[in-house]
Design a protein around this nucleic acid. Structure first.
Lengths: 158, 158
DNA sequence: CCTTGACATGAAGTTCACTTTAACTTGCAT
DNA sequence: ATGCAAGTTAAAGTGAACTTCATGTCAAGG
């Protein structure tokens, strides 16, 4: 019953809307697993599709792949995950999203009060110093994930 | 009156809460300017502090340095910018923040309705497919900026 | 005058989440 | 049997926004 119908990587990539290279990368990062054919090619069970949906959803919430890997590792290894399992995993996202929304809202309200004054003081302005969290996070880029980026027409009309 | 009191890079870095290397980087990216001493060391006018506050605020709103550079280039070159100038620059952020907040709120509401079902369908789930915008943005990382990241205690209790 | 800490430069490294490239192998249809 | 799309690997590249490093110079106090 749960035999056959294993997907090759290109097929899975199409269905998931990802590049094959992304799937190989996810596997190397311990996010998904595959069986191999005699010749060494990857074959995926259909359950992987749900896993990929979870990964995408988690990314949209703002989790890093490492955090997602860690979350996925709490799934039962033996039986295949139930709806309840997936629901449990995604439950904590709500708080995270609430936090993000709150932060942005504060920023916006700070902006509203700042627009009139144009103060932009490094110390006092709510805009340049939102949560007094100005600390560095080490090297590397920090920018917005796809959900938050405007992709539709970059207008330079500031 | 507007003479003297030029800040060396370390001083400016302290006051702005940035590393000297960041300031040099900003200068190389055309975001800030400096005069030089006879020996070639950078000296900054105090107005640069306001500029840095603007840069930080813009980053918090989600603008890239290139977008910020472009915005700053619309400031008057001759006279020093007035409050009105700064206010004009930051006015368009409100719409951007509104967009971001809306997007996140939709995601959260989608989550709320998904939590019970645990469906996580790649095609239908609002979580894994928020705005039907699943398209790739090319290579490179896409993750949350500091404002949106939890820095306080990583709890792996999903 | 001399020491010492701050500064300068260019090149390379870092992070994350992937993609691209190069060189080679599988697997399915004809 | 063969042709060719699709698969494999390791290594290097990408992008943003910086940092780190190596090597050498400046400036201010003693």
């Amino acid at each position: 019953m749960n035999s056959a119908e294993l997907l090759p990587i290109g097929e899975l990539a199409n269905r998931a809307g990802l590049a094959p290279s992304a799937l190989r990368y996810y596997e190397s990062a311990g996010l998904i697993a595959s069986t191999r054919t005699g010749g060494g090619q990857r074959r995926y069970e259909r359950g992987v599709l749900r896993r990929l949906a979870f990964i995408r959803a988690a990314q949209n919430v703002g989790l890093s792949l490492e955090e997602i890997r860690s979350a996925l590792s709490t799934l039962p290894a033996q039986r295949s995950p139930t709806r309840a399992d997936w629901a449990r995993l995604s439950r904590s996202w709500r708080a995270r999203l609430d936090e993000q929304i709150t932060g942005l809202t504060q920023l916006r309200d700070g902006l509203t009060s700042c627009i009139g004054c144009g103060c932009l003081s490094l110390q006092r302005c709510a805009l340049s110093n939102p949560n007094d969290a100005v600390a560095a996070l080490g090297p590397g880029a920090r920018f917005l994930p796809s959900v938050l980026r405007r992709t539709t027409g970059v207008r330079p009309d500031m």
